[in-house]
Design a protein around this nucleic acid. Structure first.
Lengths: 330, 330
DNA sequence: GCAGACTTGGAAACCGCTTTCCAGGGAGGT
DNA sequence: ACCTCCCTGGAAAGCGGTTTCCAAGTCTGC
């Protein structure tokens, strides 16, 4: 490997001068030497050793993003937003996927801390497990006490800057919209009870129904993914409208209905949550609550990088989007 | 930040001993001292500085993956496969997205080289630009000459280990299958001419038709994404079967037809390529050529990490999957 | 023409950790 | 009891940069 010393030697200058020329410094270097160094670096094919730079500078230009599952378009969109924002800041991105294992999440924070990354983004729902959340908080606190910055997309449970989708409010608004179409008997494909995002959406939905004086929905728990929606839909009985707490579950539910010959929306209405872009061509088009995922990811990075020391929590409103997967009741 | 020296001091041992205890060494440390060090590290909340480790060890435990677009499920699946494989090896992953800019790709290789990552994975189609490919090769060669390992998913154009989907063969087989259903007038939504993947699929398809003695397809170029498929589909005239060179384009085409009231497959048959998992619930179900994307990603990482110095090129066969988006001609 | 303010280049300390090389001590063999 | 040999712990030399501190040279203004 070519080192800076090789370059300096070849250019006939000191290490210091070579460093100043090549790796951005406030100090000026004369045109002659500057040219000599640049030419030497070019001839030798010099690439700075970032590990060494990080060590010497005490700060890296890498950020870490931790998501549950990259193949889930929800996380892909969020991660993409954050990565675009990172790119404009000249930051590199390390991505970790936990596959929904909270222990993995904690482990990643520790690892990213060890990497001395500039910022850590925790993307995805918190879990309702006090112990595990506590340990994650501890790990984050340790990271932050060493100068690290952190932000979260999800719930404000970690004591760090947070971009919090208005899950309750969005679901409530969706419930009112669906009730406004004349539906009265609802089912909720509620996902796992311990996932705060799922629980919030379920609660917001049920709460709004109660306020409207409508019967409580039939709540069915299950995994938070496509297959979870598929399975849960099988258990729905006697509802005219089914709310899946996220879009991919809704797609699973639609698949289940299609297979059973149940027509959507004629026989049953289905709604989701998130408004996943890659699902926009789904048939029937999915009624959902739109979240600006890309922006949220970018915003989370901004918050993490922000100078302010106080913890910022930003609510992000969802927008109900009625599409053909729901129908107006006669 | 707590350093190893702090830990050593607190434990009353030397730096060397602390290092041996905490950061995996071949050397044994006595039980007493070991316990003292571990306790000190725990009390202080020590996290090794990986930049320093990387520098001292001369090798990092990070790999880099460069993809075009993470929100495209094709890349997400590939990246996911690679990341799972990396996780089992205890490697961290840096992900870069080029948004289809070849210059970005080159820049990433340079950056990842600077990071001294263990391996670089270049995921995605090569471009038919000799100059740009040459510069990428140079950059890769420089990286490899410094001990870096690299692999590519796509075409064997870079002189590194490659996982090469059998685009031509797969498209040809698809063409034969569709011809077998009685189709004779074809259109190809061919993507951009300079994208080798797109061009290969198009050529394979057209070649098979020619061998069968069928008329050449109507080839329409355009972007390689959903909107490209949507736009290209508008220009198709007088074909009973449309082959979009990837699934997301096919979905765009389906959307275009749906809007125009053209029924698929009754009025026109549509096929794609890749068999994107998240599209499995699409209506109508998409006829396509299945590629084992997750495995391919994992395999690419294996190849990159493999000890062998000779360049390995692995062909991956695609499997034609006929689904409801195509029909048999009367 | 000269003091003082700037500018530019270099020497060397330092960032935090790994690892080689030594030294001391205990175990085993005779 | 004595001598290897092996094992364990510590000192110190890097790893490849950055940056502080000096020294020398260049300008400027009077």
């Amino acid at each position: 490997m070519v080192t800076l010393e090789d370059v300096a030697k070849q250019a006939g200058v000191s290490l210091a001068t070579a460093s100043r020329v090549l790796n951005g410094s406030t100090r000026q270097v004369g045109a002659t030497l500057r040219a000599r160094v640049e030419q030497a670096a070019d001839e030798l094919g010099y690439r700075a050793n970032i590990a060494a730079q990080t060590l010497a500078r005490g700060a890296s230009n890498v950020i870490g993003i931790v998501v549950h599952d990259l193949t889930d378009p929800y996380f892909a969109a969020l991660a993409d937003g954050a990565m675009r924002a990172a790119a404009t800041e000249g930051l590199l991105v390390m991505v970790g996927t936990t596959h929904r294992d909270p222990e993995q999440e904690i482990a990643y924070v520790a690892t990213l801390n060890a990497q001395r990354v500039r910022a850590v983004l925790l993307v995805g729902s918190r879990v309702a497990d006090h112990a595990v959340t506590g340990r994650l908080r501890d790990e984050l606190a340790r990271y932050q006490s060493g100068g690290g910055r952190a932000a979260c997309v999800g719930q404000d449970l970690l004591g760090v800057d947070t971009v919090a989708p208005a899950n309750r409010a969005g679901a409530a608004e969706l419930a009112r919209a669906l009730a406004g179409l004349g539906h009265t008997r609802f089912a909720v494909l509620a996902g796992p009870p311990h996932l705060v995002t799922a629980a919030d959406r379920c609660a917001g939905f049920a709460g709004a129904l109660e306020e409207l004086g409508l019967p409580a929905p039939h709540v069915i728990h299950g995994p938070f993914d496509r297959d979870g929606g598929y399975a849960a839909a099988q258990q729905v009985k006697d509802a005219t409208c089914v709310f899946a707490v996220n879009d991919v579950m809704a797609v699973g539910a639609l698949a289940a209905y299609r297979e059973r010959g149940v027509r959507v929306p004629e026989d049953v209405s289905v709604a989701g949550f998130d408004d996943i872009v890659t699902l926009r061509d789904h048939v029937p088009a999915l009624t959902t609550v739109r979240l600006p995922l890309t922006d949220m990811g970018a915003r989370a990075l901004e918050l993490a990088l922000g100078e302010t020391d106080e913890v910022v929590v930003e609510q992000v409103a969802g927008e109900v989007v009625l599409r053909e997967s729901v129908r107006r009741m006669a």
